[in-house]
Design a protein around this nucleic acid. Sequence first.
RNA 1: GGCGACGUGGCCGAGUGGUUAGGCAGCGGUCUGCAAAACCGCGUAUCCCGGUUCAAUUCCGGGCGUCGCCUCCA
Length: 480
Amino acid sequence: MIKLFNTLTNTKEDFKPLKNNEVKMYVCGVTVYDYCHIGHARAAVVFDTIRRYFIYKNYNVTFVKNFTDIDDKIIKKANQEGVTWQEISKKYINEHNKDMTSLNVLAPDFAPKATEFIDEMINICKILIEKDYAYEIDGDVFFSVKKFNDYGKLSHRHLEELLAGARVEINEKKEYELDFALWKKSKANEPAFDSPWGLGRPGWHIECSAMSAKLLGLPFDIHGGGKDLIFPHHENEIAQTEAAFEKPLANYWIHNGFVNIDKEKMSKSSGNFYTIKEVINEFSPEVLRLFLLSSHYLNPLDFSLENLMEFEKSVEKFYLLLDRINDYKASTKKSTDKTEYKSIYENFIAEFEKALDDNFNTPVALSAVFELIKETNKFLDQKIDNNTFIAFKSDFFNTVKIIRDVLGIYYKKPEEWFKENLSIPEDKLMELIEKRNMARKNKNFAEADEIRLALLKQGIELHDTFYGTKYTTHRIHKNL
RNA sequence: GGCGACGUGGCCGAGUGGUUAGGCAGCGGUCUGCAAAACCGCGUAUCCCGGUUCAAUUCCGGGCGUCGCCUCCA
């Protein structure tokens, strides 16, 4: 039984799908006006992992993640660059998708764009006006929060509280300060869509109401996004959808914590952010993904390049083990004193699932992974006969597949990993290894050590094993 | 101002009313020409003050500190 923390009830609950073993989930995507940063990466990786875990548990998952492709910031950027808003949104959708691919985030089943659902949004506005939940003033349509009794149920706030803290907002036409726009009249030279209220464009929240209702139906199981979306975005989405359709929007609301830099929230407006591209220029995306999973998704995650180095080593450790298995020479003699690998394998599966069942506790799941690596190394330290080794490999690669499928890491071949970090041409390296081994043979250890040290400075470590000299590599982070 | 979260060993990071993850770094050892890798061993933490309890890091109250939301934001 999967338990998850539901923002709506502020408690950890058993997950019960609405229908059999189906999970329908909608996750808020990004507004496409710039490159994605690490905060976007965290949300993407968190929900991707949740999705992957449901799939692993044999649920049939329908996963929707949208793009907000029309919005003030997109228009502003388009004006700055002297291009159309479509060119901006297209470009950054494309860049977003590249980033997601590099992070090994599975493509959503649906990746709708707001502008593809204008009719549906207009329809919701019409219904809300008809039902007297919304009103039109001079081409703008606003939602009247006072009329929706449950307003505040997600963010656990009351209108008075919200008003008390509200920064002075000079809005004009609204009947009540906290009312929000469903439809915005467009100014001259702004992108515009035809509507019963004249030319305009949708407000921010309405798109998700339209797309989720159309693509998943109401209610659906899980709605997710970053914690910063709880208010007002998701609160408003609930108000619109539930007022218009008289059905609950989603049963479970999941929100991931922020990525911090020096304890402060990473955000565009504060300027303290790293883009995904900047980071994966310095570290493998796999390292970034592992790092993002290394703390619980509800908690803040402090980002630093130094922290990434730690996880770079973790990834390396795994590939070292794979490499070891590839090279392993089973003993021709019958195994002695061998422990059963079966129990290591079964223990891992149990720990791993227990962790993820409990509100997707990826740090604990990772500790099970690290234990597995250690236990496996220990197992291989014994003398293993061929039959035992073959049986072991089968169990081991089953577990690796689970880790890959669920956590989305460790999907490379070890040689790929080590080669991608190689700082000199491989044939040159082979020459040096050859040269060093000649020196070793001649007991010229000074020369041998000199070669090894020189390579080490370039991020290449040599390991003399009984089946030959192996190399491993790690990136040199000059700028850190 | 209102509401909320958090404070764990050198660092990162979980769980738990009593036997107390995991990782990184460090130290000692096995191995090695020497290393590296791997393995073994060591370190033994829960902001402060009260309270409840046979027992609290875990529950309650207070304090201090950090952060978040109330504005676009993953």
